[in-house]
Nucleic acid binder design. Structure first.
Lengths: 203, 203
DNA sequence: GTCTATAGAGGGATAGAC
DNA sequence: GTCTATCCCTCTATAGAC
Protein backbone atom coordinates (compact mmCIF):
# COMPACT_ATOMS: atom_id res chain seq x y z
CA UNK A 1 0.00 0.00 0.00
CA UNK A 2 1.75 3.11 -1.20
CA UNK A 3 1.58 6.42 0.52
CA UNK A 4 -1.02 8.77 -0.89
CA UNK A 5 0.42 11.80 -2.62
CA UNK A 6 -0.70 14.66 -0.44
CA UNK A 7 -0.02 18.33 -0.03
CA UNK A 8 2.55 18.83 2.72
CA UNK A 9 0.24 21.46 4.19
CA UNK A 10 -2.60 18.97 4.73
CA UNK A 11 -3.54 18.34 8.31
CA UNK A 12 -3.30 14.85 9.70
CA UNK A 13 -7.07 14.57 9.67
CA UNK A 14 -7.19 15.50 6.00
CA UNK A 15 -4.46 13.04 5.15
CA UNK A 16 -6.34 10.22 6.84
CA UNK A 17 -9.52 11.24 5.06
CA UNK A 18 -7.72 11.30 1.71
CA UNK A 19 -6.22 7.89 2.36
CA UNK A 20 -9.65 6.59 3.39
CA UNK A 21 -11.16 7.83 0.15
CA UNK A 22 -8.46 6.11 -1.82
CA UNK A 23 -8.45 2.75 -0.12
CA UNK A 24 -12.20 2.41 0.49
CA UNK A 25 -12.99 3.38 -3.09
CA UNK A 26 -10.55 0.89 -4.47
CA UNK A 27 -11.31 -2.09 -2.26
CA UNK A 28 -14.73 -1.51 -0.72
CA UNK A 29 -15.59 -1.52 2.96
CA UNK A 30 -15.16 -5.19 3.80
CA UNK A 31 -11.83 -5.72 2.06
CA UNK A 32 -10.30 -2.57 3.49
CA UNK A 33 -8.19 -2.82 6.64
CA UNK A 34 -7.72 0.20 8.84
CA UNK A 35 -4.00 -0.59 8.76
CA UNK A 36 -4.01 -0.03 4.99
CA UNK A 37 -5.53 3.39 5.46
CA UNK A 38 -3.09 4.30 8.21
CA UNK A 39 -0.18 3.23 6.08
CA UNK A 40 -1.47 5.07 3.03
CA UNK A 41 -1.86 8.19 5.14
CA UNK A 42 1.60 7.77 6.61
CA UNK A 43 0.30 7.81 10.15
CA UNK A 44 -0.14 5.45 13.03
CA UNK A 45 -3.22 3.27 13.21
CA UNK A 46 -4.30 4.77 16.51
CA UNK A 47 -4.69 8.17 14.95
CA UNK A 48 -7.42 6.93 12.68
CA UNK A 49 -9.54 6.12 15.70
CA UNK A 50 -8.48 9.29 17.41
CA UNK A 51 -9.84 11.42 14.58
CA UNK A 52 -12.71 9.33 13.28
CA UNK A 53 -13.70 7.02 16.16
CA UNK A 54 -14.14 3.94 13.95
CA UNK A 55 -13.65 2.44 10.53
CA UNK A 56 -17.36 2.68 9.86
CA UNK A 57 -17.58 6.36 10.77
CA UNK A 58 -14.72 7.22 8.44
CA UNK A 59 -16.33 5.14 5.75
CA UNK A 60 -19.63 6.97 6.08
CA UNK A 61 -17.88 10.30 5.67
CA UNK A 62 -16.10 9.03 2.57
CA UNK A 63 -19.38 7.70 1.21
CA UNK A 64 -21.19 11.00 1.64
CA UNK A 65 -18.50 12.80 -0.30
CA UNK A 66 -18.56 10.23 -3.07
CA UNK A 67 -22.32 10.35 -3.39
CA UNK A 68 -22.16 14.10 -3.72
CA UNK A 69 -19.55 13.96 -6.45
CA UNK A 70 -21.52 11.26 -8.24
CA UNK A 71 -24.94 12.93 -8.08
CA UNK A 72 -24.10 16.51 -7.25
CA UNK A 73 -23.38 18.05 -10.61
CA UNK A 74 -26.26 16.42 -12.45
CA UNK A 75 -28.94 18.46 -10.72
CA UNK A 76 -28.08 21.83 -12.30
CA UNK A 77 -27.91 20.17 -15.72
CA UNK A 78 -31.20 18.29 -15.71
CA UNK A 79 -33.14 21.05 -13.96
CA UNK A 80 -32.11 23.77 -16.39
CA UNK A 81 -35.24 24.85 -18.31
CA UNK A 82 -33.26 26.95 -20.76
CA UNK A 83 -31.23 24.21 -22.41
CA UNK A 84 -32.48 21.81 -25.05
CA UNK A 85 -32.66 18.07 -24.56
CA UNK A 86 -29.75 17.62 -26.95
CA UNK A 87 -27.63 20.08 -25.03
CA UNK A 88 -28.44 18.35 -21.76
CA UNK A 89 -27.38 15.03 -23.18
CA UNK A 90 -24.08 16.49 -24.34
CA UNK A 91 -23.50 18.05 -20.95
CA UNK A 92 -24.32 14.88 -19.05
CA UNK A 93 -22.03 12.82 -21.24
CA UNK A 94 -19.10 15.18 -21.04
CA UNK A 95 -19.44 15.94 -17.33
CA UNK A 96 -19.76 12.31 -16.33
CA UNK A 97 -16.95 11.22 -18.58
CA UNK A 98 -14.62 13.82 -17.09
CA UNK A 99 -15.60 12.80 -13.59
CA UNK A 100 -15.08 9.11 -14.30
CA UNK A 101 -11.78 9.60 -16.03
CA UNK A 102 -10.59 11.31 -12.87
CA UNK A 103 -12.24 8.75 -10.57
CA UNK A 104 -12.39 5.42 -12.37
CA UNK A 105 -13.23 3.48 -9.22
CA UNK A 106 -16.17 5.69 -8.36
CA UNK A 107 -19.03 3.91 -10.14
CA UNK A 108 -18.16 0.48 -8.86
CA UNK A 109 -17.92 1.85 -5.36
CA UNK A 110 -21.24 3.68 -5.53
CA UNK A 111 -23.10 0.76 -7.08
CA UNK A 112 -21.66 -1.64 -4.59
CA UNK A 113 -22.34 0.23 -1.43
CA UNK A 114 -25.78 1.13 -2.74
CA UNK A 115 -26.61 -2.56 -2.78
CA UNK A 116 -25.89 -2.86 0.90
CA UNK A 117 -27.55 0.40 1.73
CA UNK A 118 -30.24 1.47 -0.77
CA UNK A 119 -31.82 4.06 1.56
CA UNK A 120 -28.52 5.87 1.66
CA UNK A 121 -29.27 7.06 -1.88
CA UNK A 122 -32.39 8.82 -0.76
CA UNK A 123 -30.52 10.89 1.80
CA UNK A 124 -28.01 11.86 -0.86
CA UNK A 125 -30.77 13.12 -3.14
CA UNK A 126 -31.53 16.83 -2.97
CA UNK A 127 -35.24 16.05 -2.87
CA UNK A 128 -37.94 13.49 -3.38
CA UNK A 129 -38.78 12.80 -7.03
CA UNK A 130 -35.45 14.30 -7.96
CA UNK A 131 -35.46 12.68 -11.38
CA UNK A 132 -39.17 12.67 -12.06
CA UNK A 133 -39.60 16.41 -11.65
CA UNK A 134 -36.59 17.36 -13.75
CA UNK A 135 -36.79 19.27 -17.02
CA UNK A 136 -34.73 16.49 -18.57
CA UNK A 137 -37.32 13.78 -17.96
CA UNK A 138 -40.11 16.14 -18.99
CA UNK A 139 -38.36 16.98 -22.24
CA UNK A 140 -37.80 13.31 -22.94
CA UNK A 141 -41.45 12.54 -22.28
CA UNK A 142 -42.49 15.40 -24.58
CA UNK A 143 -40.79 13.69 -27.48
CA UNK A 144 -44.03 11.71 -27.61
CA UNK A 145 -42.33 8.62 -28.83
CA UNK A 146 -44.64 6.65 -26.61
CA UNK A 147 -41.63 5.48 -24.72
CA UNK A 148 -40.75 5.41 -21.08
CA UNK A 149 -38.14 8.15 -20.62
CA UNK A 150 -36.46 6.05 -17.96
CA UNK A 151 -35.65 3.41 -20.54
CA UNK A 152 -33.74 6.00 -22.45
CA UNK A 153 -32.05 7.28 -19.31
CA UNK A 154 -30.86 3.80 -18.40
CA UNK A 155 -29.32 3.49 -21.85
CA UNK A 156 -27.49 6.81 -21.74
CA UNK A 157 -26.10 6.10 -18.32
CA UNK A 158 -25.16 2.60 -19.39
CA UNK A 159 -23.27 3.89 -22.41
CA UNK A 160 -21.42 6.44 -20.28
CA UNK A 161 -20.71 4.50 -17.11
CA UNK A 162 -20.49 0.86 -18.12
CA UNK A 163 -17.17 1.12 -19.99
CA UNK A 164 -15.50 2.28 -16.78
CA UNK A 165 -16.96 -0.65 -14.89
CA UNK A 166 -15.83 -3.04 -17.56
CA UNK A 167 -12.43 -1.46 -17.96
CA UNK A 168 -10.36 -4.25 -16.35
CA UNK A 169 -12.10 -6.96 -18.34
CA UNK A 170 -12.11 -4.92 -21.52
CA UNK A 171 -8.42 -4.17 -21.31
CA UNK A 172 -7.65 -7.84 -20.85
CA UNK A 173 -9.97 -9.06 -23.60
CA UNK A 174 -8.87 -6.57 -26.21
CA UNK A 175 -5.25 -5.86 -25.29
CA UNK A 176 -6.03 -2.22 -24.72
CA UNK A 177 -3.64 -0.12 -22.67
CA UNK A 178 -4.55 2.81 -20.45
CA UNK A 179 -3.73 5.46 -23.02
CA UNK A 180 -5.85 3.79 -25.67
CA UNK A 181 -8.71 3.32 -23.26
CA UNK A 182 -8.59 6.96 -22.25
CA UNK A 183 -8.66 7.97 -25.88
CA UNK A 184 -11.71 5.80 -26.46
CA UNK A 185 -13.51 7.42 -23.56
CA UNK A 186 -12.78 10.86 -25.00
CA UNK A 187 -14.15 9.76 -28.37
CA UNK A 188 -17.32 8.58 -26.68
CA UNK A 189 -18.06 12.15 -25.59
CA UNK A 190 -18.89 12.83 -29.23
CA UNK A 191 -20.16 9.38 -30.13
CA UNK A 192 -22.78 8.96 -27.43
CA UNK A 193 -24.74 12.18 -28.11
CA UNK A 194 -24.86 11.29 -31.80
CA UNK A 195 -26.11 7.83 -30.99
CA UNK A 196 -28.69 9.30 -28.66
CA UNK A 197 -30.05 11.54 -31.39
CA UNK A 198 -30.40 8.55 -33.66
CA UNK A 199 -32.12 6.58 -30.92
CA UNK A 200 -34.59 9.38 -30.29
CA UNK A 201 -35.41 9.65 -33.97
CA UNK A 202 -35.89 5.91 -34.20
CA UNK A 203 -38.23 5.36 -31.35
CA UNK B 1 -28.85 -15.98 6.45
CA UNK B 2 -31.65 -18.15 5.15
CA UNK B 3 -31.24 -21.67 4.04
CA UNK B 4 -30.80 -22.12 0.31
CA UNK B 5 -33.66 -23.88 -1.39
CA UNK B 6 -32.14 -27.09 -2.58
CA UNK B 7 -33.24 -30.36 -4.04
CA UNK B 8 -33.50 -32.92 -1.27
CA UNK B 9 -31.50 -35.29 -3.46
CA UNK B 10 -28.49 -32.99 -3.61
CA UNK B 11 -25.34 -34.29 -2.05
CA UNK B 12 -23.76 -32.39 0.81
CA UNK B 13 -21.01 -31.24 -1.47
CA UNK B 14 -23.51 -29.87 -3.97
CA UNK B 15 -25.44 -28.10 -1.25
CA UNK B 16 -22.30 -26.37 0.00
CA UNK B 17 -21.41 -25.41 -3.54
CA UNK B 18 -24.89 -23.99 -4.12
CA UNK B 19 -24.72 -22.04 -0.89
CA UNK B 20 -21.28 -20.76 -1.83
CA UNK B 21 -22.58 -19.58 -5.17
CA UNK B 22 -25.40 -17.74 -3.47
CA UNK B 23 -23.49 -16.05 -0.69
CA UNK B 24 -20.32 -15.23 -2.61
CA UNK B 25 -22.30 -13.78 -5.50
CA UNK B 26 -24.36 -11.61 -3.22
CA UNK B 27 -21.65 -10.33 -0.91
CA UNK B 28 -18.34 -10.82 -2.67
CA UNK B 29 -15.34 -12.70 -1.36
CA UNK B 30 -14.19 -10.38 1.41
CA UNK B 31 -17.59 -9.78 2.99
CA UNK B 32 -18.54 -13.45 2.97
CA UNK B 33 -17.95 -15.52 6.09
CA UNK B 34 -17.55 -19.25 5.79
CA UNK B 35 -20.05 -19.50 8.62
CA UNK B 36 -22.66 -17.81 6.40
CA UNK B 37 -22.11 -20.38 3.70
CA UNK B 38 -22.33 -23.25 6.16
CA UNK B 39 -25.55 -21.89 7.57
CA UNK B 40 -27.03 -21.30 4.11
CA UNK B 41 -26.15 -24.87 3.19
CA UNK B 42 -27.63 -26.19 6.40
CA UNK B 43 -24.40 -27.92 7.35
CA UNK B 44 -21.63 -27.55 9.84
CA UNK B 45 -18.73 -25.23 9.20
CA UNK B 46 -16.20 -28.04 9.39
CA UNK B 47 -17.77 -29.73 6.39
CA UNK B 48 -16.96 -26.81 4.15
CA UNK B 49 -13.28 -27.36 4.81
CA UNK B 50 -13.69 -31.11 4.59
CA UNK B 51 -15.05 -30.87 1.04
CA UNK B 52 -13.31 -27.78 -0.30
CA UNK B 53 -10.19 -27.34 1.86
CA UNK B 54 -10.54 -23.56 2.16
CA UNK B 55 -12.75 -20.55 1.57
CA UNK B 56 -10.56 -19.48 -1.31
CA UNK B 57 -10.71 -22.84 -3.06
CA UNK B 58 -14.49 -22.88 -2.87
CA UNK B 59 -14.56 -19.35 -4.14
CA UNK B 60 -12.42 -20.18 -7.14
CA UNK B 61 -14.74 -23.00 -8.09
CA UNK B 62 -17.74 -20.68 -7.81
CA UNK B 63 -15.94 -18.08 -9.88
CA UNK B 64 -15.13 -20.50 -12.69
CA UNK B 65 -18.78 -21.46 -12.96
CA UNK B 66 -19.92 -17.85 -12.95
CA UNK B 67 -17.43 -16.89 -15.62
CA UNK B 68 -18.65 -19.69 -17.79
CA UNK B 69 -22.27 -18.66 -17.44
CA UNK B 70 -21.34 -15.05 -18.11
CA UNK B 71 -19.15 -15.63 -21.15
CA UNK B 72 -20.05 -19.15 -22.21
CA UNK B 73 -23.11 -18.67 -24.34
CA UNK B 74 -21.81 -15.65 -26.22
CA UNK B 75 -19.22 -17.60 -28.20
CA UNK B 76 -21.65 -19.58 -30.35
CA UNK B 77 -23.58 -16.39 -31.08
CA UNK B 78 -20.73 -14.13 -32.13
CA UNK B 79 -18.85 -16.83 -34.02
CA UNK B 80 -21.79 -17.87 -36.16
CA UNK B 81 -21.00 -16.91 -39.76
CA UNK B 82 -24.52 -17.67 -40.93
CA UNK B 83 -26.43 -15.06 -38.96
CA UNK B 84 -26.63 -11.37 -39.79
CA UNK B 85 -25.31 -8.65 -37.55
CA UNK B 86 -28.85 -7.64 -36.67
CA UNK B 87 -29.74 -11.17 -35.68
CA UNK B 88 -26.65 -11.46 -33.55
CA UNK B 89 -27.55 -8.28 -31.72
CA UNK B 90 -31.05 -9.58 -31.02
CA UNK B 91 -29.66 -12.85 -29.76
CA UNK B 92 -27.09 -11.20 -27.52
CA UNK B 93 -29.69 -8.90 -26.03
CA UNK B 94 -32.25 -11.57 -25.37
CA UNK B 95 -29.81 -14.17 -24.09
CA UNK B 96 -28.07 -11.78 -21.72
CA UNK B 97 -31.30 -10.32 -20.48
CA UNK B 98 -32.66 -13.76 -19.67
CA UNK B 99 -29.47 -14.70 -17.91
CA UNK B 100 -29.41 -11.51 -15.87
CA UNK B 101 -33.06 -11.71 -14.91
CA UNK B 102 -32.28 -15.12 -13.47
CA UNK B 103 -29.00 -13.99 -11.91
CA UNK B 104 -29.26 -10.31 -11.05
CA UNK B 105 -26.15 -10.34 -8.87
CA UNK B 106 -23.98 -11.88 -11.57
CA UNK B 107 -22.63 -8.77 -13.33
CA UNK B 108 -21.62 -7.00 -10.16
CA UNK B 109 -19.87 -10.10 -8.98
CA UNK B 110 -17.99 -10.66 -12.22
CA UNK B 111 -16.95 -7.03 -12.59
CA UNK B 112 -15.82 -6.86 -9.01
CA UNK B 113 -13.74 -9.96 -8.86
CA UNK B 114 -12.29 -9.13 -12.27
CA UNK B 115 -10.82 -5.99 -10.73
CA UNK B 116 -8.89 -8.01 -8.21
CA UNK B 117 -7.93 -10.64 -10.69
CA UNK B 118 -7.84 -9.46 -14.31
CA UNK B 119 -5.81 -12.40 -15.58
CA UNK B 120 -8.56 -14.71 -14.43
CA UNK B 121 -10.59 -13.50 -17.41
CA UNK B 122 -8.00 -14.76 -19.85
CA UNK B 123 -8.19 -18.28 -18.47
CA UNK B 124 -11.96 -18.16 -18.78
CA UNK B 125 -11.74 -17.24 -22.44
CA UNK B 126 -11.93 -20.10 -24.94
CA UNK B 127 -8.97 -18.62 -26.81
CA UNK B 128 -6.72 -15.66 -27.37
CA UNK B 129 -8.32 -12.86 -29.40
CA UNK B 130 -11.70 -14.33 -28.61
CA UNK B 131 -13.51 -11.12 -29.46
CA UNK B 132 -11.24 -9.84 -32.19
CA UNK B 133 -11.56 -12.94 -34.35
CA UNK B 134 -15.32 -13.22 -34.05
CA UNK B 135 -17.73 -12.84 -36.94
CA UNK B 136 -19.57 -10.27 -34.88
CA UNK B 137 -16.64 -7.85 -34.69
CA UNK B 138 -15.84 -8.48 -38.34
CA UNK B 139 -19.41 -7.74 -39.39
CA UNK B 140 -19.38 -4.56 -37.32
CA UNK B 141 -16.11 -3.45 -38.89
CA UNK B 142 -17.50 -4.18 -42.36
CA UNK B 143 -20.20 -1.61 -41.82
CA UNK B 144 -17.45 0.79 -42.90
CA UNK B 145 -18.72 3.53 -40.70
CA UNK B 146 -15.15 4.39 -39.89
CA UNK B 147 -15.86 3.53 -36.30
CA UNK B 148 -14.16 1.33 -33.80
CA UNK B 149 -16.43 -1.72 -33.44
CA UNK B 150 -15.45 -1.95 -29.78
CA UNK B 151 -17.06 1.40 -29.12
CA UNK B 152 -20.30 -0.03 -30.35
CA UNK B 153 -19.82 -3.21 -28.37
CA UNK B 154 -19.29 -1.25 -25.15
CA UNK B 155 -22.55 0.56 -25.80
CA UNK B 156 -24.59 -2.54 -26.43
CA UNK B 157 -23.25 -4.25 -23.35
CA UNK B 158 -23.81 -1.11 -21.33
CA UNK B 159 -27.42 -0.88 -22.41
CA UNK B 160 -28.00 -4.53 -21.55
CA UNK B 161 -26.02 -4.95 -18.36
CA UNK B 162 -25.96 -1.55 -16.70
CA UNK B 163 -29.64 -1.49 -15.67
CA UNK B 164 -29.07 -4.60 -13.59
CA UNK B 165 -26.10 -3.01 -11.90
CA UNK B 166 -28.06 0.12 -11.21
CA UNK B 167 -31.17 -1.71 -10.10
CA UNK B 168 -30.98 -0.90 -6.38
CA UNK B 169 -30.35 2.79 -7.01
CA UNK B 170 -32.87 2.96 -9.82
CA UNK B 171 -35.61 1.37 -7.75
CA UNK B 172 -34.99 3.83 -4.96
CA UNK B 173 -34.77 6.89 -7.20
CA UNK B 174 -37.84 6.13 -9.27
CA UNK B 175 -40.04 4.20 -6.86
CA UNK B 176 -39.98 1.18 -9.10
CA UNK B 177 -40.91 -2.19 -7.68
CA UNK B 178 -39.53 -5.55 -8.75
CA UNK B 179 -42.42 -6.40 -11.05
CA UNK B 180 -42.18 -3.09 -12.86
CA UNK B 181 -38.43 -3.40 -13.18
CA UNK B 182 -38.74 -6.86 -14.62
CA UNK B 183 -41.28 -5.62 -17.14
CA UNK B 184 -38.91 -2.85 -18.17
CA UNK B 185 -36.11 -5.33 -18.73
CA UNK B 186 -38.37 -7.40 -20.94
CA UNK B 187 -39.28 -4.33 -22.96
CA UNK B 188 -35.61 -3.60 -23.45
CA UNK B 189 -35.21 -6.86 -25.37
CA UNK B 190 -37.10 -5.17 -28.18
CA UNK B 191 -35.93 -1.62 -27.54
CA UNK B 192 -32.19 -2.19 -27.57
CA UNK B 193 -31.95 -3.89 -30.99
CA UNK B 194 -34.01 -1.06 -32.50
CA UNK B 195 -31.78 1.52 -30.94
CA UNK B 196 -28.75 -0.35 -32.20
CA UNK B 197 -30.05 -0.29 -35.76
CA UNK B 198 -30.54 3.47 -35.49
CA UNK B 199 -27.06 3.88 -34.06
CA UNK B 200 -25.51 1.89 -36.89
CA UNK B 201 -27.35 3.94 -39.50
CA UNK B 202 -26.26 7.15 -37.81
CA UNK B 203 -22.58 6.54 -37.52
C1' DG C 1 -1.47 14.96 18.92
C1' DT C 2 1.18 11.02 18.19
C1' DC C 3 3.16 6.96 19.43
C1' DT C 4 3.64 1.67 21.40
C1' DA C 5 1.48 -2.04 23.29
C1' DT C 6 -2.32 -4.74 23.92
C1' DA C 7 -7.03 -5.96 24.78
C1' DG C 8 -10.90 -8.19 22.69
C1' DA C 9 -13.77 -9.89 18.94
C1' DG C 10 -14.28 -12.29 14.75
C1' DG C 11 -13.48 -15.63 11.55
C1' DG C 12 -10.76 -19.49 8.94
C1' DA C 13 -9.24 -23.78 9.73
C1' DT C 14 -8.45 -28.24 12.24
C1' DA C 15 -8.40 -32.03 15.89
C1' DG C 16 -10.73 -35.63 17.37
C1' DA C 17 -15.06 -37.99 18.92
C1' DC C 18 -18.83 -40.42 16.94
C1' DG D 1 -19.25 -38.10 6.62
C1' DT D 2 -20.69 -35.24 10.18
C1' DC D 3 -20.44 -33.14 14.41
C1' DT D 4 -18.42 -30.17 18.70
C1' DA D 5 -14.85 -27.81 20.53
C1' DT D 6 -11.11 -25.07 19.96
C1' DC D 7 -6.87 -23.21 18.10
C1' DC D 8 -4.76 -19.21 16.35
C1' DC D 9 -4.23 -15.50 13.48
C1' DT D 10 -5.96 -11.10 11.90
C1' DC D 11 -8.05 -6.96 12.57
C1' DT D 12 -10.54 -3.14 15.08
C1' DA D 13 -10.29 -0.38 18.84
C1' DT D 14 -8.40 1.47 23.16
C1' DA D 15 -5.22 2.31 27.17
C1' DG D 16 -1.59 4.82 28.52
C1' DA D 17 3.20 6.79 27.95
C1' DC D 18 5.35 10.80 25.94
Amino acid sequence: MKKVTTEPTQSTEERIMAAGREVFTKKGFAATRTRDIAEAAGINLALLNYYFRSKKKLFDLVMIGKLQSFFGFIGPIIYNDKTSLETKIEMIVSSYTSLLMENPDLPYFILGEARNNPELMLNAMPKKDFLKKSAFIRQLANKKTGQDPYQFLLSILGMIIFPFLMKPIFKTLTNTNDAKFKQMMIQRVKLIPNWCKAMLRAS
